[in-house]
Design a protein around this nucleic acid. Sequence first.
DNA 1: GATTTCACGTA
DNA 2: CGTACGTGAAATCC
Length: 559
Amino acid sequence: MIPIVIVGNRAAVGDPEAPGDTWVGDLEGLVRVVARLEAATHPRWLVSSSREALEPLVDVGVRVQRCWDITEVHRILHGGWAADLGRAWAGAHGLDLATLPTPRRDDLFDHGAADLPTAGLTQPDGHLRPDLFDGSATDDQLRALTTVLSRTAALQEQQAGRLGPRTVAAAHSESAAAMLCVELAHDGLPIDRPTAEDLVSRAVGPRPRDEMEAARVRAARDDQVLRLAPGRGHTDLRNPVQVRELLATVGVTVPNTRAHVLEPFRTTHPLVEALLQWRKDERIATTYGYRWLDDHVHHDGRLRGGWTACDGAAGRMTAQNGLHNLPAQLRPAVAAEPGHVLVRADLGQIEPRVLAVVSGDRAFAEATRADDLYAPVAAKLGVERPVAKVAVLAAMYGQRSGAAGRALGDLERAYPVAMRLLDDAYESGVARRPLRTWGGRRINLDTMMVDADDGSRGRFARNAVIQGSAAELFKAWAATVRHATAPLGAQIVLCLHDELLVQAPEDRAGEVVDAVGQCLTDSARRWSGRSGAPQPSDPDAVRFVADTSVLHRWSEAKG
DNA sequence: GATTTCACGTA
DNA sequence: CGTACGTGAAATCC
């Protein structure tokens, strides 16, 4: 592994075996050095964080295939979200994070970085010296940091190895996901702006020219609701308390005014229907309206936001600026650029299939052999498919009420091994015992959710093992697709928990579709820890399926 | 000004 | 009494 260190506008590309041979220079030089080595050998680059080290490279068009992201690996091994080189060093050396030193900003100018002896990477207590990262780094400091990276990664590799080959694989794929996040933030999601403007205008009217007009449009929208409630024209529809009072005056008494609570009253009074429609339009006006387009859709028609490779809880990817919350109403505006298509692929029923792997339930694994997993489950339980589906989902989410809760007993009898896994996770949550996902990501229950009651923590834990493991498989798949389709001129433009959107040149669409399927086969085998050729007769084999289609607009997907 | 509550979009 | 996330508006707490 070859370490890359960037501090300010200085960079180092290390030779961990011979620190004297470490290259040090400016960012322009870094680009040349990395591009040359990448083309020659595709090494696994060693970085403190993908964002820090690779963003400057991605910005100028240099992309690498593989890395070891020390902060992402730290998150896997130790859980939680807070991660930097100092924490990773502490974690790798078994040091107490409570004693982690913090740099004092006012110290920087007094005894700055230049005084730092290169040999002294650490403090007497073993923690990494925080002033290593400060000020304008000297060449010797940059060389010292490449050594820090190498020592940290070597220890992490040992620790991941002790957890097993699945965790080493997770370290690789989570690192790749972090690189993908840098690229996603850089590339953005292609948006057909005229269509987007048209969709917004249909919901909230044409773009207002000034504040006066905006206020008038807003008042007109409010009036569509308020005219149905004579004498309550002063009600502020944006204030839930006032809305609840307003509803009471027309005989609708509710504990809160959320959509699913109001749904049964849709036909009770026209005001309810009007209010629910108002909420939809207001959402477009405030969150996904003209300001959103202006702020986040750049002049090249790409919607951009920040991406993280893992959230704080179980390890899903997150995205900002609405990339993960885009209302279905606006999906027609997500469109391939000229000469390109969108290859959309989503993993079918990923969570129950992941449960089959994680639990090792042979009967449940057998159900995954079907295209529709719920069909054999329904047959085994002797119930209709919709009942089987809600029962399985209820088991994974911890729901106890309604028809789903009643079907749980049958599920326990049919798939005791899988259900036992979920119940054990629940108990770990209640007891605040840490858990690990299939790939070895630690889920802390002692430090997080300190205020939550036992039941909440238990349900969270029950779901986190499944959701977190599913996120690992998804990221392994995405990383493999990234690697396989880049040479075809394709780029991943959106990751949505179980769905991938890849923009591809029109004439390579078929190859990208094939690659997406092959990548799922390959990544699922690596993720589930099965080496060698697949054995069709293997009773433990769990099948994963992807639904793939070629589109020009995201809205063309059957959903 | 920062944090909490409510609401709602996605999976 | 099903999970996770991000965002905005209003209320609330400094």
